[in-house]
Amino acid sequence: MANILALAAKELRAYFVSPIAYVLLVFFALLFGWFYVASVNVMVQLSMGQFGMGPQVVNINEFMIRPLFGNTAVILLFLLPMLTMRSFAEEKRSGTMELLLTSPLTDLQIILGKFFGALALYCLMLALTLLHVGLLFWYGEPEWGPVASGYLGLLLMGGAFISVGLAISSTTKNQIVAGVATFAVLLLFWIINWIGDASGTTSQAVLAYLSILEHFDDFSKGVIDTKHVTYYLSFIVVGLFLTAKSMDQERWNG
């Protein structure tokens, strides 16, 4: 445990001495802020009855927070590959992997250290959005339940993205390759259900089930379904397992 913590702290530190942490935080805040302002505008227009329905009380959760979470999920799809692309690739390129692998650390400790290091920075990114959401609570009266479940969903989904990124980063020495491949794989998991259909044939239902954003929807509605929690958790476990396999493979192949 102490080792995992030491590694996670090192990872987090590395993010902040390189520009990666700042680039991610700034652009995430900018993009999130943009979507926030856009949805506030829609809200205002709706509540002032500009769509010909007359002034009305608009459900802030339904019309503001839920789309905002949905948009955030998409931003993360683009940004999180940048969070994980260097994790293993850079250590392998610079030779520091040799230090980690010859220190009294298990592969699992190294992987979890990197996972939690990346997750910690991701939590910081999410923490930035609390400011905006806090303003909604200040001026409006949203239900806190769906907000909390939305954050839980974002956390789980981000964890899944990170585990994919780690698995891919562990297969290459090149950060760019890792980043691009991670983005491509995540995108594939997003659009995979475009051919799938939950009520169609078995194979279509499987494809629909695999879609990474599909499972997020319920969270943003305020529903915490064990089915979705299980999906994300197993996604993370599979990602980390593949990372471990790839490290092992690397070791045997030299």
Binding site: A6, K10, R13, S18, G95, T96, M97, L100, S103
Partner: peptide, 23 residues
């Protein structure tokens, strides 16, 4: 190793503290 496995973004003292910690 043949190439010293240093983290360029760490100071010497920080690096050695990290190594001490993981050991």
């Amino acid at each position: 190793p043949e190439t010293p496995p240093l983290y360029p973004e760490m100071t010497v003292a920080e690096y050695l503290h990290f190594v001490a910690r993981i050991n």
